[in-house]
Nucleic acid binder design. Structure first.
Lengths: 257, 257
DNA sequence: CGGTATTTTGAGTATCGTCAAGGCCAGTGG
DNA sequence: CCACTGGCCTTGACGATACTCAAAATACCG
């Protein structure tokens, strides 16, 4: 398995902003124990119920966190993007399977050395705590999105989440003139699973939003946002424009088009 | 506001199992800074967007974590029970309001002293980390429950969650002969909000489950479980009987009836 | 340019939300 | 002791929404 070094960004964990705040000693210890791994779209990185042998950090690509239901359906409970960590620390086996949704690169740390480093590095402990708090926030935001009754409203919520949280990731969100253009990195079927609906309904939902003049479907996976406010209303966002989100959004999204 | 001491359990944070693992110095520092507070059902403990001035731990009762949507509806994203902590550490204002669902007693720690203690007490840091990881697990379990299509299936998932996670709380779950009897501590309306449905639909769902012979509605808030396996299948639990859950369940539920 | 996977569209059915009315229970006051 | 009241739960009828299954259209890839 040959590693292809990416020239346009720092190598390995240096690319992850949150690790740059670590003390040099901790950082280099982490760097020494980390091993890069690549996975192709569709590969399983960690199965449900596996004892966790490593803690990892996503460098590039998109991962699905999912659970297999009794009837065989796969329910997606979250998407992992660059900078996200997974593999439970201090806990037993994982409750969810991790699969590559696209080609993916991660940095894996063997669990025991990592925990050992953790106990003597308050700075790493802090980074981890913040990471988990962030995860928790996202999980709850997701619950709000999922709590919406109509599928188009969930779609609106999804688009807003991508705008705010995934804005800094890859080139998912770009500014095109007045509006924003979003690339949806996963298939309709995955999106349907994520939003608790069927692919057909997702499709209809997108076209409903388009007919309402709130978005424009450039290509199936490229959505242009025409009326951010209308989407926010659909999603039930009380405080539009969400100050923190919008600030993040505008700070991180540079003029690309 | 007179505090009524409860005689059948240790006072204050001593009652919370997870704190008993702290080192004595940390524990007593925590005990010194903690202040008990009581709230009546319906009172708001912390509003959405409030800057968090304290971190707290639930001693008794049930709290709602909720968000007010644009249309004024209240969406519940979680229930807090004894031992749960809330009030974000190291983060900005809260994203959700905290309200008392029943009469409630909490122990509040002023935020700054708490964080100060936290930075010099790795044991407290560990407890907090575990608490947050636990929260994250629960949030994801909820997402699985919410991802179910039909409301009766979500109800089934809810009942299982109560059995596993809330088994140790108060006297919510008791064994009655062969089966389990569950007390539902919140109203139909709250339950509906939690499960993303209407109170009417929740009612119909319970009666559908009763007609199917899987539960028996003893009183509106007392549900007897007749067919745990059928509920698990509805909820999409692949691995019935869920080993960890069932073990917890049987370990913690003593013969009461 | 063809073959495959994905997305979209269509028609029929099941489920849920909505609105309105009725029933149950506890607390209150006669 | 009983009637009254208010809150909550339940039931019924109808419209809206989403799921299912099937087929067509489009995009993707060599």
């Amino acid at each position: 398995m040959a590693y292809v070094l990416q020239k346009d960004r720092p190598d390995g964990i240096s690319a992850i902003r949150q690790f740059s705040e670590l003390e040099p000693a901790t950082f280099s210890a982490l760097q020494d124990m980390g091993r890069k791994r690549r996975y192709e779209a569709g590969q399983t990185i960690s199965a449900e119920g596996d004892p966790t042998t490593f803690v990892a950090c996503v460098l590039d690509g998109f991962l699905r966190m999912q659970k297999t239901l009794a009837d065989g359906r796969q329910q997606i409970v979250g998407i992992l993007v660059e900078g996200d960590m997974f593999g439970q620390v201090f806990s037993g086996p994982q409750h969810f399977a991790i699969e590559a949704a696209t080609d993916t690169e991660i940095c894996a740390f063997p669990r025991l050395p990592f925990e050992k480093l953790l106990t003597r590095s308050p700075d790493l402990d802090r980074v981890l705590l913040l990471n988990i708090l962030n995860e928790l926030d996202r999980a709850r935001d997701w619950m709000i999105v999922l709590s919406t009754q109509k599928v188009c409203d969930r779609l609106a919520g999804f688009l807003l989440v991508v705008c705010s949280r995934f804005a800094t990731v890859d080139h998912l969100v770009t500014r095109v003139g007045e509006g924003l253009e979003i690339r949806i990195p996963i298939s309709r079927a995955d999106l349907a699973s994520l939003l608790g609906a069927r692919a057909e309904t997702i499709s209809r939902g997108f076209h409903t939003l388009e007919d309402a003049g709130e978005i424009s479907i450039v290509k199936p996976d490229i959505i242009r946002i025409l009326d951010l406010k209308a989407l926010a209303v659909r999603a039930g966002e009380e405080d539009y424009p969400d100050p923190s989100n919008l600030r993040d959004m505008l700070r991180s999204v540079r003029q690309h088009g």
